[in-house]
Design a protein around this nucleic acid. Structure first.
Lengths: 188, 188
DNA sequence: AGGATTATTGACCAATCGTTCCAGAAATAC
DNA sequence: GTATTTCTGGAACGATTGGTCAATAATCCT
C-alpha cells in the first residue's frame, strides 16, 4: 500500500451515474465524466480502467441500489399486496430521474455480455422475491389464485419499466398512478 | 430544377433507421450512416442538413410507419377486442427489432423539442384511436364498463413499450405473450 | 528517516468526430 | 448544344475523442 486515493469511489461513481443517466454511454465523454466526478482523467482511468469499465461499475452500483430499494419496499406493509403497491408508488415517485439499467438495455440490448450479466443478475434477484410476494398475496386472497406468479412477477417488472418510460416521455404523476393501478388490476 | 437525386430518400432513410436502431444516435457516425445508406457523405448532408436532421427524419418515418401499422391492426377482426389482441400480437412478433421511438425517448427524454414534438404527435394519434377502440370494446362487453378508456389506452401504449423493453433485454416469445395476456386481463 | 509504491496532474497521442470545400460529372431547361 | 443547376465522391478541416506517458506528490512500512 502506498498513497491512498483522494476521492471516494462510491460518491465519484454516483456522479458518473448522473452523467450516464442523462446522456447515455456513447454521448458521455471522459472529460464530462472526470469533470462531474471531480477527479482528473488519469485518476478515472486508474480507478476504473476505461470508460466502459466505469460504465459497468456505474450500472452495477445503480442497479444494485435500485434492486435493494425495491426489495425493501416489497417487504413493507402488513400484507404482501401493500408491499406491491408501495413498490409501485416508490417507482412512480422516483420516475422523474432516468433509470440507468433501463437506458442500458435500450442502448445496448444484449450485445455486451458483461452488461447483460449485471442486469440479468439483478433482475433474477428481484423477480425471485417478487414472485414470493405474489404467492403470499395469493394466499391472502388479494391476488387471483389462478395467476402464474412467475409470469405476474415478470409482468410487474415490465410495468416498472413502462412507468419509467412513460415518465421519461413526459407523463405526469396522475398518469403514472393510473398506469400502476391498471397493472395491479390485472392481478385481481 | 436540374439534376435529380440518384437515390431514393425513403429507402435511404430506412437504412439509416436500421443503423440508429442498433446503435442509437450518439454512437452512429456519419461514416456508418453514409455507408449503410449507400450514398456519399455530401449527399447525406445535402439531403438532410446534418446528422440531427437525419435522425429526426428517421425517427419521424419509423414512428409514423409504426403508428400506421398499429392503427391497421386495431381495425382488424370482427370485434374491437380482437383488434387489441392483434395489435399486441403484432408488437410481439416484431419485438426482436428495436423500436427507434422508444430508443429516442430513452436517449433524449424530453430534452429536444423537435424530437418531442414528433413523438408526441404520433402518440396522440395512436391514443385517440386506441381509446375509441376501447370504448367499442366496452360496448361489446369485452372490457369492463368502469374503466377509464383514456387511462386504459395509455396503459396499453405503455404495455407496448414494456413488451419491447422486455424483448430487447432478452425475453422469449412465451414471456412476451404472458406479458400481453396479463395486460389485457387488466381490462376485463 | 528513507525506500517502495501508488495517486495525481497536465501535457500529449493518434484516431475519429461532424462538417465543409472542391472539382468533376450528369441531367434538365432553353 | 449550350448553359445552368445540382448531385456526387474524395480530400480536407478543426475540434474532440478515448487513452497514455512522464514527472510530481503523498502515503505506508521498516
Amino acid at each position: 500500500m502506498a498513497r491512498p486515493r483522494e476521492f471516494d469511489l462510491g460518491t465519484a461513481l454516483d456522479e458518473a451515474i448522473g452523467v450516464f443517466r442523462e446522456q447515455g454511454f456513447a454521448a458521455s465523454s471522459a472529460a464530462d465524466l472526470s469533470r462531474a466526478m471531480g477527479i482528473g482523467r488519469q485518476s478515472l482511468y486508474g480507478a476504473f480502467g476505461d470508460k466502459w469499465g466505469l460504465y459497468l461499475a456505474a450500472v452495477k452500483r445503480d442497479v444494485t441500489q435500485d434492486t435493494e430499494d425495491h426489495l425493501l419496499a416489497l417487504s413493507t406493509g402488513p400484507r404482501a399486496i401493500d408491499g406491491l403497491e408501495i413498490l409501485l408508488a416508490r417507482v412512480r415517485a422516483k420516475a422523474a430521474q432516468a433509470c440507468l439499467g433501463l437506458c442500458a438495455v435500450c442502448e445496448f440490448g444484449r450485445s455486451r455480455a458483461e452488461l447483460t450479466a449485471i442486469l440479468a443478475a439483478a433482475e433474477r434477484r428481484f423477480l425471485a422475491v417478487l414472485a414470493a410476494r405474489l404467492r403470499e398475496a395469493q394466499q391472502e386472497g388479494s391476488a387471483g389464485p389462478e395467476i402464474d406468479v412467475k409470469e405476474a412477477a415478470a409482468f410487474l417488472a415490465a410495468t416498472i419499466n413502462a412507468v419509467r418510460v412513460a415518465a421519461r416521455s413526459g407523463a405526469g404523476a396522475a398518469q403514472l398512478q393510473a398506469l400502476a393501478e391498471l397493472a395491479l388490476r390485472a392481478l385481481r
